[in-house]
Structures are given as C-alpha cells and as structure tokens.
Simulated assay, not measured.
Amino acid sequence: MAKAASSKRGGAKGDATAAAPEAPNRATNRERPAEPRRREADRAELLEYYRQMLLIRRFEERAGQLYGLGLIGGFCHLYIGQEAVAVGLQSALDTSKDSVITGYRDHGHMLAYGIDPKVIMAELTGRQAGISKGKGGSMHMFSVEHKFYGGHGIVGAQVSLGTGLAFKHKYSDDGGVCLAYFGDGAANQGQVYESFNMAQLWGLPIIYVIENNQYAMGTSVNRASAEDQLYKRGESFRIPGLQVDGMDVLAVRGAADAALEWVRGGKGPILLELKTYRYRGHSMSDPAKYRSREEVQAVREQSDPIEAVKRELEKAGASEDELKAIDRQIKEIVAESADFAEQSPEPDPAELHTDVLVESY
C-alpha cells in the first residue's frame, strides 16, 4: 500500500515535517461512575423539595387554565408529573458557574432554578414584563443572569448548543458544568450524536439529561426507538450512562451528585436517563388518545413525585396542617403571578426591532 506523503512546512528549507498530535489512548478508558445512592435528606431539605415541586405543579395547572381562557397563545407544554427531575437535578448545581439549557417544556426548569414566577407567567402571556419581554412565550424563555440558556423549540437543537456551553466552560476554565436536557423523542436526532462525539473527544464538562416521559409527542418510546434503554445511547462514544427513577426526587438528587462528581473530576461527559411521566398531553392541543386514562391514573396513584415526598415528610414528623399551609402559600404565589401577568401591558410594537443582533455590524 502506498505511503501517504507527509506535508512539509518552512518554505525553501521545508525539511521539517509537521508532527501530528498524539491521539489519547481511549481503549483503556472504560471506567464507570459508581452507582448513585438515593439522597438521604433531612426534614428541612425535604420541605424545600416539596415546596419547589408543588410550586411547579400549581403554576402549570394555572398556566393550563390561562391557556384555556385564551391568555396564553401558541404552544404550551406543561411539566406536570415531571417535577422531580428539574428539582432534583437543579438543586445540586452551583448557580454561580453552572449553566442549563433545555427544550420547549421549560417552565418547570425556570421555577426550579429560582426565577421569579411573575416574570415567567408574564412571558407566557406575552407581556412586556416577561423574562424575554414577551417575545419568547412558552417555548423560548432565556435568562443570561441565571445562566439559563433556553427554552428551544427545535427538537434536539439544545443538545448541540449545550455542548457549546460546555466547551465555553472548559475553554475559560471557569469550573462550570452544563446541564443539557432533552427528551426521549429528541434522543433519536442526528445532532445529538454529533454532540456526543465532540464532547467525549474534547472531554467537555457536560451532563446530558434525557427526560424519558415515555411518549415523545405521541408515540411510545418502545415503538420509536430500536434501543429503548436510552441511558446506553452514549456507549459507542464511551460516554457512561445511568438510568434513574425520575419520579423520586431523592433518587434524582443522588444521581445528580454522582454525575457532578464524575464531570467535575475531569472525566468528561456523562448521560443520565430519567424515567419519568407526563400527566397531560404533549402540549395543550394534544388530546393524548395514544394512552388510556387508566394508565395515567395508575401512575398518579403509584408514583406521583409530590405524594412520594409528602410521605417522606410525614415519616419525618411533618403535620398535615404544616403541609396544607405550604400549599396555601404556593397557591397565593401562583395567583399573584397570574394577576401580575394579566395586569402587565403588552410590548410596545417598537420592541419588534430590538434584540435582533447583539450589536450592529
């Protein structure tokens, strides 16, 4: 077989052959993260998880009502049933340096990240006071201040963008990790695997989170995916994966701790598959006829993430009156956010011409 000619550099004296960088030996890189342990939480921590998940549940219920009244336009994807994923993972982040990016089912993530419910609801209703000035709506919220980079309507697009955020963390050596969420439907998109390849080649600090709510838009993951054990999807790129009970906030938090230890230890990307379930349709316009009411009710009764934490709290000595008081407080916060949104003005038409470019060229 003919030998490839080596490229010469150095002009007329071009006798120095450019040496290619030595490729790392990945053949021995088969280390696996330890199996995560379910978080042992004290009463105060359990109360905080309960409060955050209940806030997401009540907020999303109210958003569904406002959509029915015509106050929220376009698409609206509710997070009801999946609350343990966002709360369990984001409670482990360092908000001073870590970044987050997700798809269009994003309201719950923003609430778990501590963003004011008023500006989220105002964004849903397209008001000037919204976190994206009413321009993003349900699917395209964004907050550089909170290192929350969307809210993306293109299925799977956030995975490549999240890989870019992780590259930024490594390039600037800021110690940050990117958490990139996507769903079981997006797990079949081509750009996801291009991103996996680059992330592993460059050893990027990123946690890929597959929120497997079983149905993508309306097709069961078992019918749509040849490999339906989605935590294995990174194996051909030597990215380890863990499968987690996404209906148990303590299991999710334990997995978050294990994943962050792996990534912050300089071992490159990791993939988490969170087995969860959405109670509502894919969006508010989805009648969800691809599954039975009995199936949804069975999950609610057996695996509801909020009821699970409530039981843990009762074991820890929390009284029924204490938990009811939290529910009343959350309902007041949500009512205030809805009132704020309804009373806020719509954007000035001149806003159409702002935020088009970062600067003029």
Results as ranks from 00 to 15, higher is better:
I207G: 01
H152N: 15
G134T: 07
K133A: 14
I131G: 02
A112V: 11
G185W: 02
A122R: 00
Y149Q: 03
V119Y: 01
S138F: 05
N188K: 06
G190A: 12
G114S: 01
Y149N: 00
M110P: 03
I115T: 10
L111E: 00
I206C: 14
S195K: 09
I210Y: 07
N197V: 12
G134A: 09
F148I: 09
I131C: 15
K168G: 08
S143Y: 05
A129P: 00
Q191W: 05
V155W: 03
D184T: 11
E123V: 05
F182A: 10
A199W: 08
K147M: 09
L201F: 15
G183T: 07
Q214T: 09
H140M: 08
A180Q: 01
S143T: 10
S195R: 01
N188R: 03
L201C: 09
K118F: 00
S143I: 14
I131Y: 09
G203P: 14
P205L: 10
Q191N: 14
S160W: 05
L179Y: 13
F167E: 02
G150S: 12
A180F: 06
Q191T: 12
V119H: 07
F182K: 08
D174S: 11
F148S: 03
S138K: 00
V209Q: 06
M198Q: 05
V119S: 12
E211C: 02
I115N: 07
H107E: 07
D174T: 13
A122N: 11
G114H: 10
S172P: 00
P117W: 09
Y171D: 04
Q214D: 08
M141S: 02
P117F: 11
F167L: 15
K118C: 15
G203L: 10
G151F: 02
G136V: 06
A157T: 03
C178L: 09
H152T: 02
N213M: 06
M121C: 12
I206F: 11
G151S: 10
V192Q: 00
V119L: 07
W202C: 09
Q189G: 14
F167V: 05
L165E: 05
